[in-house]
Each structure stands twice: as C-alpha cells, then as structure tokens.
Nucleic acid binder design. Structure first.
Length: 472
RNA sequence: GCCCCCAUCGUCCAGCGGCCUAGGACGCCUGCCUUUCACGCAGGUAACACGGGUUCGAAUCCCGUUGGGGGUGCCA
C-alpha cells in the first residue's frame, strides 16, 4: 500500500484567483477527494516586493466559493525562512551551489558578446567566491546526463542537464528563490503528486535536481495540466482576457457550473454526460485521461453549463441564489417568487433574472426602443388590439383575474382586433406583441398571462391605457 | 536562437491497431412544439495538418516536415 495521496495548490499572491489557477486547483482537489487524500494550500509569497497580502484573501475566498475546501491551515512561505536557509546551508556544504556576484546586466552583456544566447553562462562556477552581501547562490547543474520524469498527463519528459543553466537558489539578499522554496516545501510537506500548469514543465528538471541534492525524496508523480488559452490560442492573461474568478461570480455564474466546466477542459467523462454533479466528477476523473494540449476557455459553453445548472436547481434554491443579484431588494424578491419557474427556465446567468421581473417592481417599466419599434411602430392593428384588450380585461370580474381567464380575454381581443388565422381563431403570436410591450417594455419575457396576473388589474390597465395614448 | 510540449469538426471532449461511412457536446443553420422568449424534440453544418514508414490492416504505433503553444528573471 502506497502513501495516502497528498496534493497542494500553491498560488502566489500577485493577483486575483484566475480561471487558469482554478483549473489547476480543481485537478488537485479532485484527485485528493477521489483518493481520500489531502488537499493542502501553500501561499508562495517569497517575493516581498511583489507580494500583495490582501490578495490571499481573494484566493481563499474564491476557492471556498468554488467549493474546493482545503485541509489544514494554509502554509505561508514567508514564515518558513529558517527552513529554506537551513536547506540552502546544506546545499552549500555539499558543494551543490556556488556564489555568484554577476548582475543581470553583466550577464546579459556577456551573452550579447558571445552571440546572444540567453541564460546564465556559468561565469562564477569555478571562482570559489565566498558568500557575501549581494552574492547569489547558484545551483551547479551537471553537464552530463538527463533529468526526466514520467508525467501523468504527458508521459516521459526529459531534459539534457547540459541545457539547464545554473539557476539562482538564494538571492543576493539571502531570500530563497521559487525553486528552492517550492521543491523543498513539497518534499517537506510530503506532497505525493505535484499537479500544476504546463508552464512549470521547464522548471521541473531543476526542481528534481534540487530535491536530489537536498537528499530529500522526489514526489511520486507529476502531472502538468494543459494551459487554458484565449481565442488567439495564447495563454490566458490577466491583462487581455476575462480571467478573474470573482468577476464570473459577480456576473451570475454558479460555482458548481464553473467547476463543472473547468473539469471539462482537458478532460471528459467516458459516458459523454457533461453536465453533472461534482460527486460524479470526483469518481470519474482520471489524470491519465487528461489531454496534454491547450484548451480554449469558451464562455459560450460555460454559459450553457451555467444555464443547465440553473435549471437543475429546485425553485427555492434558484430564488435563494438569485437574491443577491436583485438590486431592488424585497419587492424584487417577491416579484421573483411569483414568477420563479418561468424565469428560471429562461436565464443563463443570475444577472439576467432581475431584468425579467423588473416590470413588476418599477412604477413605469423602461421602454426598450427596439421592442417599441418592432411591436408598436411596425405592428399591425396596434391601436385596435390595445383598445380591445383594455375592454376585455376591464370586463373581467375581479375573481377572474387569473391566467386562464386572461388568456381567454386577450384571445377575444385578438379576434376583435382582427388578428385571426384561417380558421377564424386568434393569432396570438402577432396580437400579444403590443400588449407585452405595453406592460413590460420589452418583446421578450416570461409568459404573458402569468405576467399580467402578477402585475395586477390596476397596473395592467394603466399601462395599456398609457401605451394606447402614445399610439394616438 | 535554444530547450520542452502539443496537433481529430469553429470550440471542448470520445477514439488507445480492425466495431470509423470518425461519435457526443457547445456554437451556428432548418423544421416541429408554441402567447414572445426560453425549454424540449427532429434534422443539418463541420475534423483525423502534411509526408514517409511499421502492419494483412493506422485517426490510433515510429520518424520527419509544417504549424501552434510554453519556457528561457537574483518573478512565481
């Protein structure tokens, strides 16, 4: 029996949690939950200059929102300086590193002179410099051999050691670099599976060499997840692309839909059922089945998954989820309650809910110009239809103000106004346009009879008369 | 430049040597249902990058080409 699985998500607090990081975090979480292992969090905040501690809150908040619950307390690298110093000391003692006083500019100048190849040229490798202020410690990479691993998603990957430059392990100010802290921590924390983005593939051989030099155990496995790309097939970037997880939350996406969609990027269930509960995804997910090629983050498909997920909610749950998006407060909550199932089936995101019931909340619905043009300006027998509808609705007994009677009344009005089909029946598709626009300001919305029922007699009649007046 | 990775419909996924006349999903288009919209239903559109091998047989294996991406910091 091998060790229980232990994975980690290791964000650096340099920005809001983005969908690409969410994708990697999810893969880690799925593996941990499936295997009954642990999902740990480690904040990689070794770069004091770039750190924005407040962003840690966003990362944690978003992971929590997504339902990616972690085990234990997040580890902060900024609090583990002594450990890295001791590890570095070990490397020095073993002769695995050497000190270097070359500045970036100097290295660059030398490279330019030598023919423009980037990377450190090993200038100080044999200078036997003593440690001192401003002197960085560089790892002495072997010049022969290869370093590789069997990647769970990519298969065998290996690099010639000769292609690996002597990378910095300790900065001139004594602070640890990413690779040292990262590799040391994984070993120290007993991480069994390192699951991260493809952009880390190139640093993995260095990581491995470092772990070996430290005399620590290599992780059992690595998995480098496909990168998420934009329409230009470029890695999703904070600047260009729509990647902030909290933005999606604010735009009315459900966390379970986001997680469901993210799982579908690079992977798909064998039975082809794409929209499904996370519990099933936990059971079915296999890193070995994850594609190695980059995946396009398709907002259209995300919307589809979101709409499906919304429709799968119970009505009560749907209303509960929509509530934070109702800017009109209690009246909107009540309005939604009266038309919940009708609205639920029609929205793709939670932000689309309020516009659909707004006509029930405001005194005067905002008139959509395109709708007005389509149904009123260009409509046929508009005045007749409005007059007839007013008359028929006004004649309805108070106790009859219900969908079926309203339907009957409007149908009669349609016939009155001449909106009839070949059999002489009411042609509702044409007739309902002006009525709908009159009461809601738009040509699209929840079913008319229910809408009118909920709107109530007085407001319905008032709006119909108001619209009739402006038709002239 | 160098190193690494990738390559099936526009997009995501299936396919792991014969079941492929290449399947599903999103998108798009048609039609049906229908009080608008949405849902649902029935169709349609559309792909194995190219060239060599290996094999009785290749989308599937190997090599190359081309194309794309990632990395190349005293960032993570």
């Amino acid at each position: 029996m091998s060790n229980p699985v232990r994975v980690r998500f290791a964000p650096s607090p340099t920005g809001f949690l983005h969908v690409g990081s969410g994708h990697s975090a999810l893969a880690n979480w799925l593996v941990a939950r499936q295997m009954g292992g642990e999902f740990l969090l480690r904040i990689e905040d070794t770069d004091v200059e770039r750190n924005r501690p407040e962003l840690v809150d966003n990362v944690l908040e978003m992971l929590h929102w997504l339902g990616l619950d972690w085990d234990g307390t997040p580890v902060h690298q900024s609090e583990r300086g002594d450990l890295y110093a001791a590890a570095a000391e070990k490397l020095v003692a073993a002769g695995s590193v050497y000190f270097c006083d070359c500045t970036g500019d100097v290295v660059q100048a030398r490279n330019k002179e030598a023919g423009g190849k980037p990377g450190y040229d090993g200038f100080c490798r044999d200078r036997n410099l003593e440690p001192g202020p401003g002197r960085a410690a560089r790892f002495r990479t072997p010049h022969e051999g290869r370093t590789g691993w069997d990647d769970l998603v990519r298969g065998e990957v290996s690099f010639a050691n000769a292609d690996l430059e002597d990378f910095v392990v300790l900065r001139g100010n004594g602070a640890p670099m990413f690779l040292l802290a990262n590799a040391f921590d994984d070993a120290d924390m007993g991480i069994t599976h390192v699951i991260r983005g493809e952009d880390h593939v190139n640093s993995t051989p260095k990581y491995l060499l470092l772990v070996d030099a430290l005399g620590m155990a290599r992780p059992e496995a690595f998995a480098h997840m496909p990168l998420l790309v934009n329409e230009g097939r470029k890695k999703l970037s904070k600047r260009r692309d729509d990647v902030s997880m909290s933005d999606y939350r604010d735009r009315g996406y459900l966390p379970e839909a986001m997680v469901n969609y993210l799982a579908l990027l690079g992977w798909g269930p064998a039975d082809g059922v794409e929209v499904r509960p996370i519990s099933e995804i936990i059971d079915l997910y296999r890193l070995a089945d994850v594609n190695a090629s980059p995946a396009f983050f398709d907002q259209k498909k995300l919307s589809f998954v979101n709409a499906e997920t919304i429709r799968g909610l119970s009505s009560e749950e749907f209303q509960r989820r929509a509530e934070p998006f109702l800017t009109y407060g209690a009246p909107a909550v009540a309005a939604l309650a009266s038309l919940a199932t009708e609205v639920q089936e029609r929205v793709r995101t939670l932000t689309e809910v309020e516009p659909m019931i707004e006509f029930l909340v405001v005194d005067e619905p905002e008139m959509d110009e395109a709708s007005w043009t389509k149904a009123i300006t260009k409509g046929k027998a508009v005045a007749e239809m409005l007059d007839a509808t007013i008359a028929r609705l006004d004649a309805l007994a108070p106790g009859d103000w219900a969908p079926e009677h309203i339907q009957a009344a409007v149908s009669q009005a349609a016939i009155d106004a001449g909106h009839v089909n070949e059999e002489g029946g009411p042609q509702l598709s044409k007739a309902q346009g002006p009525v709908r626009v009159a009461i809601s300001g738009r040509t699209v919305g929840p079913p008319l009879w229910e809408s009118i029922t909920v709107l109530g007699r007085d407001r319905t009649l008032a709006r119909l008369r108001g619209t009739r007046a402006s038709v002239g």
